[in-house]
Amino acid sequence: MATVPAVLRRPVAAFAALGLAVAALLVAPAAPASAAAANPPGVHILNQAGEYGPECPTGWFCLFNGLRYTWWSFAALPGTDIPDLSSLKFSNGASIDGSWSYSNRTLLTYCVYSEPDYRGNSFAAVPGFTWDAGWAIKSAKPC
Rank of each mutant, 00 (worst) to 15 (best):
S95M: 06
F129T: 02
T106L: 05
N104A: 07
I137L: 10
I137T: 15
V112H: 03
A125D: 04
A136K: 11
T130C: 03
D81Y: 12
E115M: 13
G128Y: 00
Y113Q: 07
S91Q: 13
S99V: 01
G79D: 09
T80V: 15
N92R: 10
L107Y: 04
L88A: 08
I96L: 10
F129D: 00
G120M: 08
W135C: 06
A76M: 15
G98M: 05
A136H: 07
F123G: 01
D117G: 07
P78L: 11
G120F: 08
G128W: 01
R105I: 02
F123P: 00
S101I: 06
R119T: 10
Y118G: 07
P116V: 11
G134P: 02
P78D: 13
Y110G: 00
L88F: 07
R105T: 01
T80K: 05
W131N: 11
I96Q: 10
P116E: 10
D117C: 01
P78N: 09
K89L: 14
W100Y: 14
P78S: 15
C111P: 00
T130G: 11
G134Y: 02
S91W: 13
F90T: 04
E115D: 14
P116A: 12
W135H: 07
S91R: 11
K141V: 02
A75T: 02
A76N: 04
S86V: 07
G98L: 02
W100A: 08
F129M: 15
G98V: 04
Y118P: 07
A125P: 05
N104S: 08
A136W: 07
P83S: 12
K138H: 12
C111F: 01
Y113T: 08
L108G: 03
K89F: 05
S95I: 05
Y110A: 00
F129W: 09
D132G: 11
K89C: 08
A140I: 04
A125V: 14
D132Q: 12
A136Y: 09
Y102V: 02
T109N: 05
S114G: 15
P78F: 09
S122F: 14
Y113R: 05
C111I: 03
L107M: 11
V126S: 07
D132C: 11
D84S: 14
A124C: 09
L108E: 12
